[in-house]
Design a protein around this nucleic acid. Structure first.
Ligand SMILES: NC(=O)c1ccc[n+]([C@@H]2O[C@H](COP(=O)([O-])OP(=O)(O)OC[C@H]3O[C@@H](n4cnc5c(N)ncnc54)[C@H](O)[C@@H]3O)[C@@H](O)[C@H]2O)c1
Ligand SMILES: NC(=O)c1ccc[n+]([C@@H]2O[C@H](COP(=O)([O-])OP(=O)(O)OC[C@H]3O[C@@H](n4cnc5c(N)ncnc54)[C@H](O)[C@@H]3O)[C@@H](O)[C@H]2O)c1
Lengths: 229, 229
DNA sequence: ACACATTTGTGCAAAAAAGCACAAATCGTC
DNA sequence: GACGATTTGTGCTTTTTTGCACAAATGTGT
């Protein structure tokens, strides 16, 4: 009778995790990090769900895809679960990010301190504007500030090779975004975060996630319009 | 036989439009706007789908929820369809936006010109930082620049009343986001765009959309990690 | 050792979203 | 004015996601 084959066997993460689940893991991870900072040892699915705005059933099902890391009747150990999620998502390694387009938004992203603490390091800035190229931009918030040189667009491939960047951020105007994306891909980047309001077409095997702020406002406006009175 | 009851009857948009569809309408709208700018008169579902990165069947089904605005064998009239989407989404009116938190990100949003051209007007800036309050910040890109005064957090309710803002943007640190959100709601705001990396809990009837950049990078990292070699 | 209160993990049902395939409508042409 | 080439709109199927409910596991107290 196989009564001794349990938990540890399903921990191997060869299992396919659904896209919907993946999109929620970061929120769980963040909440767990905060709980860990606050020295909390354990948490129930009910509480963690409330913190992250999902139902407890969904939370448990999401987590069950990673393995059986909770204890029935008790809950989850905060630090242990946090570590498991970070391992699953590849957050226990550092990720190098290149930002293309150092305007309003690119600069705000560079200044932002919240990335570093999550294992993302902005390692290169690239722009096409001659007056920007060669200038220095502060990266990261207080504590871990680094000054980065803005490189010329023509050096994009070299910069990526030298810095080993694996994530690319497109923060150029819409007109340039596709060209920039093509060059990022050609230089070996296979994960792109796009802020320009255009659809980027990329070869299979390359992931693009878009952040479209105007769309978000439009979606809000749509619902707002429908609210009576 | 009711063979004379067709198209026009289903145009009334009392019909429920699915959330997935709503989230794609802005992309269609933007592509159509570009096509209109380029003087293109007509477009097929196949072409528009390619421009926006969806399948043509999905595009047609999405559009069919608004009404029957295409012509079989021909396609859609760019300007007409664009107008129908804008009407459906409430984009033929202006939406006033209040931004709370005028740091890196809040400032970038304020400077951004792309909102104005889509009917969103930043009408008020609010911050808690004494050194920022009373200073002026340029809003909008060249052409339609306005200088806005940064108001004190204590004036939030008054500012919202005076400016009639209906959309609120939270760009404060995570610690303050829930408090700010509560006050926005109390002041009558029922649509919030949240950039702070926390889940905002709001009463029923209030919509929150979150833009979580660190999460986006983490999702990319997850997939990147899984790509062999 | 045993009853009891918790809380997880999951099988199954329901709902939502995406994809397929084709009839119906339209246009241009002969 | 009939025919063939196109392209929409949509019924139906498949897949994905969410929600429900409860058995299985754990801890506690007596
Ligand atoms: N700023 C915002 O709040 C905001 C909001 C929504 C969307 N966006 C989008 O984000 C993108 C950036 O916005 P922004 O406000 O920072 O614009 P911006 O004009 O301030 O900055 C764009 C930067 O890209 C550079 N650039 C132009 N072409 C380039 C190229 N081919 N290669 C490299 N760099 C190039 C420019 O020199 C400039 O520095 C735009 O697509 C915009 O639509 C911005
Ligand atoms: N800058 C980015 O690229 C970026 C990226 C991802 C997420 N975010 C998130 O967006 C938010 C803003 O980021 P930022 O880089 O602009 O931070 P920031 O520190 O530059 O700006 C925050 C601003 O909010 C103000 N503020 C603080 N408490 C307030 C309160 N109670 N009411 C009103 N204003 C208050 C501060 O005075 C400051 O001006 C943060 O939650 C951050 O985590 C920013």
């Amino acid at each position: 009778m196989p009564s001794k084959v349990p938990s540890s066997i399903k921990d191997g993460h060869t299992h396919k995790i659904s896209e919907a689940t993946v999109s929620r893991l970061p929120a769980y991870y963040r909440a767990l990090s905060q709980l860990a900072d606050a020295q909390q040892i354990r948490i129930s699915s009910e509480e963690l769900a409330a913190l992250t705005g999902v139902s407890s059933a969904m939370l448990r099902k999401d987590l069950s895809h990673l393995g059986s890391y909770g204890t029935r009747g008790v809950g989850y150990e905060v630090e242990f679960l946090r570590y498991q999620i970070s391992r699953e998502m590849g957050l226990n390694q550092d990720w190098s990010v290149v930002i293309v387009g150092v305007g309003n938004l690119g600069r705000a992203l560079a200044h932002y301190g919240g990335f570093g603490s999550r294992g993302f390091r902005v390692v290169a800035l690239v722009d096409a504007d001659q007056t920007l190229i060669g200038t220095k931009v502060k990266c990261g918030a207080e504590g871990k500030t680094v000054e980065l040189l803005v490189h010329a667009l023509s050096d994009l491939e070299d910069v990526i090779k030298e810095t080993n960047a694996r994530l690319g951020v497109v923060a150029t105007p819409a007109e340039s975004a596709q060209v920039v994306s093509d060059r990022l891909v050609k230089a070996g980047i296979r994960s792109i975060l796009n802020f320009a309001p255009v659809h980027l077409s990329v070869p299979e095997g390359v992931d693009v996630r878009k952040v479209d702020l105007a769309s978000e406002l439009q979606i809000l406006a749509f619902h707002e319009q429908r609210k009576a009175i």
